[in-house]
Write a protein that binds this DNA or RNA. Structure first.
Length: 137
DNA sequence: GCCAACGTTGGC
DNA sequence: GCCAACGTTGGC
């Protein structure tokens, strides 16, 4: 099983919104690198749910319930999406500032490639962020 | 609100 | 196929 991180602006789609629904399609990705990451996701893979802009923190964990399929909001037909369901919130959100303070976590694409909205997370980083967030991996 | 990073578009 | 111009994202 692989681990990921996905970003959402809470003003557009927040963790509370995600928890209020059974599952939600992750549409609107228009970047090849991010799209390729979506394409590599398999059912059962888990992802950190990160609030960009207002928040700048990892707030919860979601799971892939439907694999990559065409995004109807993309008229060019080039991009697709997956569906996520909420698994559980972190007890304590893990802020970007906290991630930057950790020597290990500084290597995350979240820090190094701030504009990428869908990225892989290594097993080690996953376990560490879960620990900081007060939940079990 | 500004600015840096960076991906995309379009002219040549 | 290169590169300048432009648009978008997201941290600060």
């Amino acid at each position: 099983m692989a681990y990921w991180l996905v970003k959402s602006e809470p003003a557009t789609w927040s963790w509370d919104d995600q928890m209020s629904v059974e599952s939600e399609h992750w549409d609107g990705v228009r970047n090849y690198q991010a799209s390729n990451n979506l394409k590599a996701m398999r059912i059962g893979d888990q992802a950190f749910f990160y609030h960009s802009q207002k928040g700048k923190e990892i707030v919860g964990i979601v799971e892939v319930v439907k694999e990559y399929y065409p995004d109807p909001s993309d008229s060019s037909g080039r991009f697709g999406m997956v569906d996520f369901k909420a698994v559980r919130p972190l007890k304590t959100p893990v802020t970007l500032a906290a991630i930057k303070e950790h020597p290990e976590l500084k290597e995350m694409p979240l820090v190094r490639q701030s504009r990428l909205s869908v990225m892989p997370v290594s097993d080690e980083h996953w376990a560490l962020v879960c620990e900081l967030g007060g939940t079990t991996a």
